[in-house]
Amino acid sequence: MAERTVDPKLLEILVCPLTKETLRYDAQSQELISEGARLAYPIRDGIPIMLPDEARSLDEEEK
């Protein structure tokens, strides 16, 4: 299966809906990471799901 990528121009304009900060693209997990909100927004079928309720908490990884 080919690894999906997100359009770099889209990454330039997307921000975290909670903190309004830029996001880091994690190609391996297919997520957009908000360091400030400690959330990972999923990318499904090449579409970023920018809903906090759909995001995974990064704090759970540290437990």
Results as ranks from 00 to 15, higher is better:
Ala37Ile: 01
Lys20Tyr: 07
Ile43Tyr: 01
Glu62Phe: 07
Gln28Met: 03
Gly46Asn: 06
Glu60Cys: 10
Ala40Cys: 05
Asp7Glu: 12
Ala2Trp: 10
Ser57Trp: 00
Gln28Trp: 00
Leu39Val: 02
Pro52Met: 07
Gly36Cys: 08
Asp59Asn: 13
Glu61Gly: 07
Leu14Glu: 08
Ala37Met: 02
Glu21Asn: 15
Ile13Leu: 12
Glu12Ser: 13
Ser29Tyr: 05
Arg24Tyr: 04
Asp53Asn: 12
Asp53Met: 10
Met50Glu: 00
Gly46His: 03
Leu32Gln: 03
Arg44Ile: 12
Leu10Thr: 13
Asp7Tyr: 00
Glu62His: 10
Asp26Lys: 03
Pro42Tyr: 04
Lys9Tyr: 04
Ile49Lys: 05
Asp53Arg: 12
Lys20Pro: 02
Glu35Phe: 01
Asp53Ala: 14
Pro8Thr: 14
Ala2Thr: 11
Thr19His: 05
Ser57Pro: 09
Pro48His: 11
Glu21His: 14
Arg4Cys: 00
Pro17Arg: 06
Glu35Cys: 00
Ile33Tyr: 01
Gln30Asp: 14
Leu11His: 07
Glu35Ile: 12
Glu62Pro: 00
Lys20Leu: 15
Arg56Glu: 12
Asp59Leu: 13
Cys16Lys: 01
Glu3Pro: 01
Gly36Met: 09
Pro17Val: 06
Met50Trp: 00
Ile47Asp: 07
Ile13Tyr: 09
Thr5Gln: 13
Ala40Leu: 09
Val15Trp: 01
Met50Ala: 01
Asp45Ala: 12
Tyr41Ala: 05
Ile47Ser: 05
Ile43Trp: 01
Leu32Arg: 02
Gln30Phe: 06
Ala55Trp: 03
Leu58Arg: 15
Leu18Ala: 06
Ile49Ala: 04
Gln28Tyr: 06
Arg38Gly: 06
Ile43Gln: 01
Glu31Cys: 11
Glu35Leu: 10
Gln30Ala: 12
Thr19Ser: 15
Met50Ile: 01
Gln28Pro: 00
Lys9Leu: 13
